[in-house]
Design a binder for these strands. Structure first.
Length: 498
RNA sequence: GAUCCGGUAGCUCAGCCGGUAGAGCACCUGACUUUUAAUCAGGUGGUCGUGAGUUCGAACCUCACCCGGAUCACCA
């Protein structure tokens, strides 16, 4: 085939069209561009480790067989270089026309960046000191029909990165590390809890009554049962029913769904870890949380410190403990024990938007959100919340206006939420009724009454401490990612034809 | 939901006061037998987010809409 023919036959074609033509040529020659399997002798990482000892210019007589995606090509006439990458590493190959023959060499240099190939050859170290494979043979395993993003800048466009994460993962190797780290973090939590004798359980995503948090649910419908269903907004109530049943240490890592806004720290579906431990209270859970997170950070970085978006965060226990009362005093110069009118006046002075309907708990929360949470950078336990906003937590024995609850705040984000679980069925029923009253008075996002949950508690749940941890946010912190979308493989996006 | 910023070649980005749509990478052709953002020469590739409007003439000005990002509100 003459060169002018090749030039004209590709003239006017887009790159994808050129690749389709190449694919058609393979088919004409009876070659399969989508092979069924390929046996490798090593992963690229194994090769990098095994031949790390080779000196510059030194050759191995071993023949190795590798596979990966062609990430770059550098042609030099009768010799050429390329890079292939597999899941964990990349390596350079070197090829020349003398060793491959005209036809094979021609096929090699007409591969496209993005193609997945198998290569066979001997490891050596190039003049410039780079471990390389001297190519003896190659096989096209999968033809790629789309060109990859430019190699130097990678894929920058956030929209494409999120909508077509597969392209992001190919083009930006550091993105792959984020998801590998995410997997390690989740594995760490599971492993730690199993070793601490917690049992992993699974509870329903589809529920007739949603609960365990203040949030709007997604609604759905079961056709044959003709039943309205909600996607769970938390894991709490089914897990506590299992505690009633007699399990003493359980946990679940699961997706929950909240029909709320989207932001750098909110995705409509996210991953929650909840655990419940019998015969302990929120102090016990606080100690557990502290150990769990500081050990996680140590396992991940080798120290107790991480840097998140330029800020050093220190997870060395003990974390700072601050009651809601002291927090309001320190950060808002406000006495938490003011009456409703006094708190409303203070909230207004502090510039809070006061809703039409409010109660003491709501006002305390408003002041806290406005003045405290956005100041808390180092890991801090905020303790003893007002009872009105915590309908599933046990009241403090010495002051029933507050509950035994803590939230862990890191870098102004709520990372964990925990209570001494309310196990008095009579108080629980009253709390649900208060929620109903609040809803009727115009409060949004109040808890639904769950009669069966009250029934469950009336059989007796031992004293129990419970904890919820937002896994995605922990991953954000440990992988230094600025947005929750960067730690969720397929973050929620509006529909768009692409 | 509100405000601001953005959407131009497969990718990264220019495009001034409204006057024929640009570069680099990628791709095609040629040269080059140790390069690595290879180099050099020549090419292909565009509904400028969508739709209206203003104008002799719109990527550029106006309006509406779509999508994304940031900030805010709700929420974890």
């Amino acid at each position: 085939m003459s060169q002018t023919t090749e030039q004209t036959q590709y003239d006017g074609l887009s790159e994808s069209e050129v690749r389709l033509k190449k694919l058609a040529h393979y088919r004409e020659k009876g070659e399969d561009a989508f092979k069924y399997k390929f046996d490798r002798s090593h992963s690229i990482k194994e090769i990098c480790e095994k031949y790390a000892h080779l000196e510059s210019g030194e050759k191995s007589e071993d023949t190795v067989i590798l596979a990966g995606r062609l990430m770059a090509k550098r042609g030099h006439g009768k010799a050429s270089f390329g890079n292939i990458a597999d899941e964990n590493a990349a390596v350079q190959y070197y090829a020349n026309i003398d060793e491959l023959g005209d036809e094979v060499y021609h096929d090699l240099i007409h591969l496209d960046v993005g193609d997945i190939i198998g290569i066979e050859g001997k490891p050596f170290v190039s003049k410039r000191g780079e471990l390389s494979i001297r190519l003896a043979k190659f096989t096209l395993l999968t033809k790629s029909l789309h060109s990859l993003p430019e190699k130097f800048h990678g894929l920058q466009d956030k929209e494409t990165r999120y909508r077509q994460r597969y392209v992001d993962l190919i083009a930006n190797p550091e993105v792959r590390h984020v998801f590998q780290d995410r997997a390690k973090i989740i594995h760490f939590f599971r492993d730690y809890l199993h070793k601490d004798n917690f049992m992993e359980v699974e509870t329903p995503v589809l529920q007739t009554i949603y609960g365990g948090a203040s949030a709007s649910p997604f609604e759905t419908h079961h056709n044959t049962l003709d039943q309205k269903l909600y996607m769970r907004i938390s894991l709490e109530l089914p897990l506590k029913r299992l505690m009633v049943g007699g399990f003493e240490r359980i946990f679940e890592i699961g997706r929950v769904f909240r029909n709320e806004g989207v932001s750098y720290k909110h995705n409509p579906e996210y991953t929650l870890l909840e655990l419940y431990q019998a015969y302990t209270d929120y102090h016990g859970i606080m100690a557990l949380t502290e150990t769990l997170l500081s050990e996680l950070v140590k396992a991940h970085t080798g120290s107790t410190k991480i840097t998140y978006q330029g800020t050093e965060l220190d997870f060395a226990p003990p974390f700072r403990r601050l009651t809601m009362k002291d927090a309001l005093k320190e950060y808002a110069d406000t006495d938490i024990n003011l009456d409703e009118a006094g708190l409303a006046k203070r909230a207004k002075e502090l510039g809070c938007d006061i809703p039409e309907q409010y109660h003491r708990g709501e006002l305390i929360n408003l002041i806290y959100d406005k003045c405290v949470e956005n100041k808390l950078i180092q890991p801090t336990f905020i303790m003893d919340h007002p009872w009105e906003t915590s309908p599933l937590a046990k009241r403090k024995a010495d002051d029933p206006r507050y509950v035994e609850r803590f939230e862990l705040i890191i870098n102004t984000m709520e990372i964990a939420n925990a209570f001494s679980e309310l196990n008095d069925p009579i108080d629980q029923k009253a709390r649900f009724e208060d929620q109903t009253k609040a809803r009727e008075a115009g409060f949004d996002e109040t808890h639904m009454t769950d009669e069966d949950f009250v029934t469950a508690l009336s059989y007796g749940m031992p004293p129990t401490g419970g904890l919820g941890i937002g896994i995605d946010r922990v991953v954000m912190l440990l992988t230094d990612q600025p947005s929750i979308r960067d730690v969720i493989a397929f973050p929620h996006m509006r529909d768009k034809q692409i």
